[in-house]
Amino acid sequence: MKSTTRGTLAAVVAGFAAAVASAAPAAAVGTVPVPVPLDGVEKSLNIELPTVGAELPVPVPGSPEGPRYVEGRLLPERAVPQLPVSAGLPGAGLRAPLPHLLGDDFDHVGLDAPASDLRTQAPGATLDAPLTPPNPDHFGLPEPKLPEAGVLTPLLQTAPGAALTMGPGL
C-alpha cells in the first residue's frame, strides 16, 4: 500500500473516531443549562441581585412500535403507529437575598424546580378493511363487514417537583 493511501486512510479513520467521540457526550446530555448573567448589573449598581438559572430539556425521539398482525383482520393493528418522544419539563433555579425579615438566621430564599422527565406518545390510528379474511365455507371468498377505524389516544406522563428553601448565606 502506498504511503499516500495509508495517510489518507489514517486521516479518514481519525476523523471518524473524532466525530464519534464528540457525538457521544452530546447525545448523553438530557438538559442544557441556561444561566442568566446578572454580574454586570450587580457591579454597576453595587447591590446584591438574585441568582437565576434554568435547564432546557433536549427532546429525544424514540422508535415507534410497528404494526401487529391480529388473527381475523386483513389489515394490521396500529396502521399509523404512535411515535414516542422522551424529553423533560424545563427546570429553574432562583436564589434571592432576603434582608433579615424573618430573623438573623435567614439570609436568602431559594426556589429549586429541577427539570423532570416527560414521556409522550403521538396519537396513532388503527383501521380494518370492510372484508373478512377468506372464509373456507364460501369457497375461500371474503364476506363483507362494517369497516373499523379508531384513534389511539396520545400519552403524556410526568412528575414535576419543586423545593422552596430559606437559610443563611447566599
Results as ranks from 00 to 15, higher is better:
Val60Thr: 14
Pro84Met: 06
Glu65Arg: 08
Pro59Trp: 09
Pro76Asn: 11
Val85Met: 03
Pro59Phe: 10
Pro76Arg: 10
Pro84Thr: 11
Leu75Arg: 03
Glu65Val: 14
Pro81Leu: 04
Leu83Asp: 08
Gly66Arg: 05
Pro67Met: 07
Pro57Asp: 04
Gly53Val: 01
Tyr69Asn: 09
Leu83Gly: 06
Leu56Trp: 04
Gly72Pro: 06
Pro84Tyr: 06
Arg68Ser: 14
Gly88Asn: 01
Gly66Ile: 03
Tyr69Arg: 14
Pro57Lys: 02
Val52Tyr: 00
Leu56Cys: 01
Tyr69His: 12
Leu83Phe: 12
Val85His: 04
Arg68Lys: 15
Val60Ser: 14
Pro61Ile: 04
Ala54Arg: 01
Arg73Ser: 13
Pro84His: 09
Val70Tyr: 07
Gly53Asp: 08
Pro67Trp: 06
Pro81Ala: 06
Arg68Ile: 13
Leu83Cys: 02
Ala54His: 01
Glu65Leu: 13
Pro57Cys: 07
Glu65Lys: 10
Gly72Thr: 08
Pro84Val: 04
Leu83His: 07
Gly88Arg: 00
Ser63Trp: 07
Ala79Glu: 06
Val85Ser: 04
Thr51Glu: 06
Thr51Lys: 02
Val80Phe: 09
Pro61Ser: 14
Val60Leu: 07
Leu74Cys: 04
Arg73Ala: 13
Arg78Lys: 13
Ala79Leu: 15
Leu75Glu: 05
Arg73Glu: 13
Val52Met: 07
Pro57Arg: 02
Gly88Lys: 00
Leu56Thr: 03
Ala54Pro: 00
Leu56Asp: 00
Thr51Pro: 00
Gly72Arg: 06
Pro61Leu: 03
Val85Tyr: 05
Val58His: 01
Leu56Lys: 02
Gly72Lys: 06
Glu77Lys: 05
Glu71Leu: 13
Pro76Asp: 07
Gly88Ala: 05
Arg68Asp: 10
Thr51Gly: 04
Leu75His: 04
Ala54Lys: 01
Gly62Asp: 09
Pro76Phe: 12
Pro57Val: 09
Gly72Glu: 08
Val70Ile: 14
Glu77Asn: 11
Val58Gln: 07
Gly62His: 06
Ser63Tyr: 06
Gly62Lys: 04
Glu65Ala: 14
Tyr69Met: 11
Pro67Thr: 08
Glu55Arg: 08
Gly53Leu: 00
Gly66Asp: 07
Ala87Glu: 05
Glu65His: 08
Ser86Thr: 15
Val58Trp: 00
Pro76Ile: 10
Leu74Ile: 15
Ser86Val: 12
Gly53Trp: 00
Ser63Asn: 11
Tyr69Ala: 10
Arg68Pro: 02
Pro57His: 06
Glu55Pro: 00
Val85Asp: 10
Gln82Asn: 08
Thr51Ala: 10
Pro61Cys: 05
Leu75Thr: 02
Leu56His: 02
Tyr69Gly: 05
Gln82Lys: 09
Glu71Ser: 15
Val80Ala: 09
Glu65Pro: 02
Pro64Arg: 08
Ser86Arg: 01
Ala79Gln: 10
Leu74Gly: 05
Gly53Ala: 15
Val80Glu: 12
Pro84Asn: 12
Pro59Asn: 11
Ala54Gly: 05
Glu71Val: 12
Leu75Trp: 15
Pro59Glu: 11
Val58Asp: 03
Pro59Leu: 11
Pro81Phe: 11
Leu74Asn: 15
Arg68Gln: 15
Gly62Met: 05
Glu77Ala: 13
Leu56Phe: 11
